[in-house]
Design a binder for these strands. Structure first.
Lengths: 220, 220
DNA sequence: TCTTAATAAAGAAAAAAATCTTTAATTAAT
DNA sequence: ATTAATTAAAGATTTTTTTCTTTATTAAGA
C-alpha cells in the first residue's frame, strides 16, 4: 500500500497561480543573468514582483531547486529549473487557425520563441489569405491542416477565428490529433477530457481594469 | 455610527474572478439577444460556460439584476446590467505607447470597442513610425503625449514598449495624469497607489498550457 | 571564535473563492 | 385548483491560495 505511493507519480498538485507567476520570475532572472549577477534571494525577487517573499520561496520549491541561506538561489540554476519545469526549454510547434488581425499579431509576435513555442503554419478558409505569408509563416488552406499536422506531429493548435466557427475548428483539431488548444475566442469549447483547453479571454483583463477605474471615479 | 454605514459607499467587495467571468456572460447574452431569446436561466448560462450554476447566480447578483424563478433573467436587462457594472457602455479613450508588433495588433484589433474602449492615438520614439497610421490610428512622437492627453482628458494608457523602458514610460504617464495603465510588458511597474495597474502577462497562459501538456505526456 | 542578521524551508493560520445545501418562489402541467 | 418541477437566492461547507509564524542554517562582521 505504501509502496504504491512511492511508485505512483505525484498528481501534479502545483497551484495554477504558481505556474502563472513562474514566467515573471524568469523575466527577472534573465535580466540578472545578463547583468552577470550570480545569486538572488527570494526577498529580492519578491520586491521586484510585488509579491510576498514566502510566496516566492514556495513557488520556487516546486521546481526542485533549493537555495542557500543568506545567499539565495543561483541565478542560472534557477533559470534552468524554471525552464525545465515549464517546458520552455523544449521545442513546441503549433498550428494556428484564423489568420485575421489577432492571428497575424500572434504570428508577428516573436516573444513566444523564448517559451519554446513556434507557430510553424497558419490556416484559413479565406482565399485571399491562402498562399500569403505573415512574418515568414505561411498561410495554408484549412484543408491541409490534417495532413500537415500528422506529418509534422503537431500537438498544439491555436484558434483565432471568429467566435461563430470556434467550436467547429476545435472539433476538427481534436479529430486531427491536437492535444492542446489555445483558444482566443470568447467561446467555452467542448472537447474530450484528454484534450487541454487554454482560454485567453482578452476582455477579462480589460473588464477588471475598467471596473477598478470606475470604482476610483465613484470615490470622488 | 450606523448612519455612517449607510452613507459610506460599499468598498467594492466584488471578487476579481467574478469580474473576469462577466465578459463571458456578455458574449453569450449578445448571441441570445441576436437569436431573439428573451429569457435565460443561470443553469443554461452555466452549461455553456462550464461553470457551476450557483456561481453564475452569485456573479449576476453583483450587478443588482434579479431573476424570476422558473424563468431566469431577462436577456436584455442582464446585458444592460453587466455592461453598466463593467463600464462597457461608457466611452473609454486610451493612448498607447509602443507601436511595435504587439501595439499594432492591439490597434488593429477592433474588438475593444465592444467594451467601450477606443485607442485614439499611439506614441513611439522611432522616427520611422512617427507620422504613420495603424488601422486608422495615428502614431505620434512620444513628446506629444502630455499635451494631447491633457487636452483630450485621456485617463487610460497602454504600454506595449520593450520591457527595458516600461517603467520609464509608466512614470511619464503618471506625471501626465493617466489613472489606469494596461501593461503588456513583463515588468512589475511601480506607481502611486491611486494609479491602477492592469498586467497582462502573455506568457502566463502559455506557461499553464505547456505545463498541463507536459503532465499529460508524462503519464504515457 | 563568537555573535548577529539574513534567509530558506516547513508548517500553521487566515483569507478568498468555489461548491454544496437548503429554502422559497412560481411557472407549467395535470 | 392542485401538484410537481425548476430555479433564484441565501447561507454553510469545503477547497484553494495566500499570508503569517517558527525553526534552523549559515554567511558576514566583531
Amino acid at each position: 500500500m505504501e509502496l504504491q505511493n512511492t511508485l505512483v507519480k505525484k498528481p501534479q498538485p502545483v497551484p495554477e497561480p504558481t505556474v502563472r507567476r513562474m514566467p515573471s520570475y524568469l523575466t527577472i532572472l534573465h535580466r540578472l543573468h545578463d547583468e552577470h549577477v550570480l545569486f538572488v534571494s527570494a526577498p529580492q525577487l519578491a520586491r521586484q514582483l510585488n509579491v510576498d517573499p514566502t510566496q516566492v520561496v514556495k513557488d520556487i520549491s516546486y521546481t526542485g531547486i533549493t537555495g542557500r541561506t543568506r545567499v539565495g538561489y543561483g541565478v542560472d540554476e534557477l533559470i534552468g529549473g524554471l525552464e525545465e519545469f515549464l517546458g520552455f526549454n523544449r521545442k513546441h510547434e503549433a498550428f494556428l487557425v484564423g489568420a485575421g488581425f489577432l492571428g497575424s499579431a500572434l504570428m508577428q509576435y516573436q516573444g513566444f520563441r523564448e517559451a519554446g513555442m513556434k507557430i510553424v503554419a497558419a490556416f484559413d478558409t479565406d482565399k485571399k489569405k491562402i498562399g500569403t505569408e505573415v512574418a515568414g509563416i505561411p498561410v495554408f488552406d484549412l484543408e491541409k491542416f490534417r495532413d500537415l499536422a500528422g506529418r509534422l506531429h503537431i500537438t498544439i493548435g491555436i484558434i483565432t477565428t471568429p467566435a461563430s466557427v470556434a467550436q467547429q475548428i476545435a472539433d476538427l483539431m481534436v479529430g486531427w490529433g491536437i492535444k492542446a488548444i489555445w483558444n482566443f475566442t470568447p467561446i467555452a469549447l467542448k472537447v474530450p477530457s484528454n484534450v487541454i483547453i487554454q482560454d485567453t479571454h482578452i476582455y477579462a483583463n480589460l473588464a477588471v481594469m475598467l471596473n477598478k477605474l470606475a470604482a476610483i471615479k465613484e470615490e470622488i
